[in-house]
């Protein structure tokens, strides 16, 4: 084969590959691009309660800036996000260390530890709704049995956010643990052997070696949980529907109600696109952090 023919062959192969994969790529792009473009289009329109639509340009976005419920929803979303994330990372890392070091733990106990995140959120929400019911729930029974005063849990405007964060943490800390456990198992044993020879204590080993080496894994878990937490919906909808009052009315819940209960699809689209921008912003920032802590 001449050198010229050899040069032509990869080009032809590339062209053939492109032609063969084009339908799948176009289909996938279409499936992603069309809903996004349609939502953007909806966000530029106002819909009356009777379904009539009119072009309002950026009207929905200027309405959003003046809407106190939007700012409240943003605040609730961020408060719930930060509280849940911190709890899940701390408990997730702790649980991962426990599972990593407790080598003799029976398989079913390990499965039990990580089982909550396999439960559908609707089931988890209903279960916790019953447990936390201030009148007939088991949670207050336990509190009172140990001499503590009963709580109103999800019915208290003060406690509703911490309670929701606890429910989400119960469900998703094991997922963080599973990711971190994978990271722990991939750490090089030689580093630990060297630390042992140098006489490093368990705490120093954890603080100076394990944690820094685990940081990329933890950031990955943070990104995955951030995307979910900023869009937190199902458990809130099942348990409080944004209440009491509007104490747990996250942006996602607010947007859902505006769109599907009050039928203002245009404004709901603007709200959801703003939430998407917040999620993207968080993911981009965390991605940068991941790059900085990579080793």
């Amino acid at each position: 084969m001449t050198p010229a023919a050899q040069a032509v062959r990869p080009d032809r192969q590339r062209a053939e590959l492109a032609a063969l994969s084009a339908p799948a790529v176009l289909f996938t792009l279409g499936m992603i691009a069309f809903p996004v473009a349609y939502t953007v289009w909806l966000g530029f329109h106002a819909f009356s309660s009777t379904g009539r639509q009119s072009f309002v340009g950026l009207g929905n976005y200027s309405k959003l800036i003046a809407d106190s419920e939007f700012w409240h929803g943003l605040w609730v979303t961020l408060a719930l996000y930060i509280l849940s994330l911190v709890l899940q990372l701390v408990l997730g890392v702790w649980l991962a260390l426990l599972l990593f070091h407790a080598k003799r733990l029976p398989g079913f106990v390990r499965s039990l530890f990580i089982s909550p995140f396999m439960m559908p959120p609707v089931v988890a929400g209903l279960m916790w709704l019953v447990i936390l019911d201030p009148s007939i729930g088991a949670a207050n029974y336990v509190l009172q049995a140990v001499g503590l005063p009963p709580s109103e849990w999800l019915a208290s405007p003060i406690w509703v956010i911490p309670t929701l964060a606890l429910i989400d943490t119960w469900q998703w800390a094991p997922y963080v643990a599973l990711i971190v456990l994978g990271g722990l198992q991939s750490l090089p044993p030689s580093v630990y052997e060297a630390a042992q020879i140098d006489g490093a204590s368990a705490y120093t080993t954890f603080r100076r070696i394990t944690l820094p080496l685990l940081l990329p894994t933890i950031v990955t878990a943070t990104i995955l949980r951030s995307v979910d937490l900023l869009r937190f919906f199902d458990i809130i909808y099942i348990t409080t529907q944004g209440g009491p009052g509007n104490a747990s009315n996250t942006l996602n819940i607010y947007g859902f109600r505006v769109g599907f209960e009050f039928f203002n699809i245009g404004y709901a689209s603007a709200l959801m696109l703003t939430l998407t921008a917040v999620v993207f912003g968080a993911v981009l920032a965390l991605n940068r952090l991941r790059g900085a802590v990579a080793w």
Partner: peptide, 21 residues
């Protein structure tokens, strides 16, 4: 009313009454 009544709709109300509370 019961504690947490701000989250009460028909399901919780009927459950409370049916169980004699």
């Amino acid at each position: 009313g019961p504690p947490g009544v701000v989250n009460y709709s028909f399901q919780q109300i009927s459950a409370l009454y049916r169980t004699g509370r």
